[in-house]
């Protein structure tokens, strides 16, 4: 920051105006659409808040007590964490491997990159609708492939053990390209001279990977992992379109529960209590993340 020495009055005024404009814009926006609503949600989570009955009465911790006694909440939390763990790992590991591969080839690079990237730009609603059909236990594509190997009667979205993994697979398919592109960009930053120097020193590929490439990519890795965690904790659309939480409650995730409680049963207070819990869980996970990664600058 350089202190500005020569200033006319009008320049001073315009500078002040700019700062005030931005301050007002940011403060008003964040208080109306972000921080304000967060406080509102927090307060509302202690109330019997029902827009249909037009009620907003404080009932202390009742929403939370009910929530913690509700098996469905724990199930949804478990499903959500399971989903986040698998999809984030899949996206990062696969994305990294594909990026490494793409980085090493010369011919047809952009065509190959497109193949992996295209699902990223397809609208999730359309993708989920199509995959629902791919997974159809009778006439779907996956059934067709499996039956060629003599495996029949796999129910995918209707199998309690396969339903969530099926949605995970689709999500990784859709999102892996994003990680690929970011990792590819990160790989460009790996200094070629150090790689060459290490080759002269007799380092093999694996040593190069662990000692040069991964440390250089660390900030990118942290970025992808943290943004993925936050967004996958809020997975909704694919669940809403493909299973509506079923079969039974085997794909019930927290966001679907929030949607159902708030916008189908009109229990805004109860649903707010779930959002507060989700918020706390994400904060804890992000905090642990930072601790583990120690000092990644974000």
């Amino acid at each position: 920051m350089i202190e500005i020495k020569i200033k006319t009055n009008s320049q001073m005024a315009s500078q002040k105006a700019l700062i005030i404009l931005v301050s007002v814009l940011m403060i008003s926006f964040y208080s109306v659409f972000s921080i304000g609503p967060m406080i509102y949600a927090f307060v509302g989570s202690f109330a019997d808040w029902n827009p249909i009955k037009d009620t907003f009465q404080f009932i202390q911790f009742n929403n939370y007590i009910h929530l913690f006694n509700n098996q469905l909440f724990w199930k949804s939390l478990k499903n959500t964490i399971y989903f986040v763990a698998v999809v984030v790992t899949g996206r990062v590991v696969l994305g990294f491997l594909i990026a490494l591969g793409l980085n090493s080839i010369r011919k047809y690079k952009s065509m190959m990159r497109s193949l992996y990237f295209l699902p990223v730009i397809m609208p999730i609603v359309a993708v989920a609708l199509v995959w629902k059909w791919l997974y159809d236990p009778n006439i779907g594509f996956f059934q067709m492939v499996l039956s060629a190997f003599g495996i029949t009667n796999v129910k995918f979205l209707f199998d309690p053990d396969l339903a969530l993994p099926s949605i995970m697979l689709m999500t990784i398919w859709k999102d892996v390209g994003y990680a690929v592109i970011i990792f590819l960009a990160g790989l460009m930053d790996v200094p070629q001279s150090i790689i060459e120097a290490s080759e002269i020193d007799g380092a093999n590929k694996r040593q190069q990977l662990w000692n040069i490439i991964i440390p250089t990519l660390k900030p990118t890795l942290i970025f992808v992992i943290i943004t993925s965690i936050i967004s996958y904790f809020q997975t909704f659309t694919q669940i809403f379109i493909m299973t509506k939480g079923g079969p039974g409650t085997s794909t019930h995730v927290l966001l679907y529960m929030i949607y159902r409680e708030a916008f189908q049963y009109y229990r805004f207070g109860y649903a707010s209590a779930i959002t507060v819990c989700l918020f706390i869980v994400i904060m804890i996970v992000t905090f642990i993340q930072f601790k583990i990664m120690k000092g990644g600058e974000v």
């Binding site: 940011m26 972000s34 609503p37 967060m38 949600a41 936050i230 708030a262 959002t275 992000t286």
Partner: peptide, 25 residues
Amino acid sequence: LFKIVLFTMMVPYIITVIPVYQMIT
């Protein structure tokens, strides 16, 4: 202000959905 920006990047948007919905109404 910068802290607010960093903080809201980390916060799940869903926590604001219900109150903002009520406000919009």
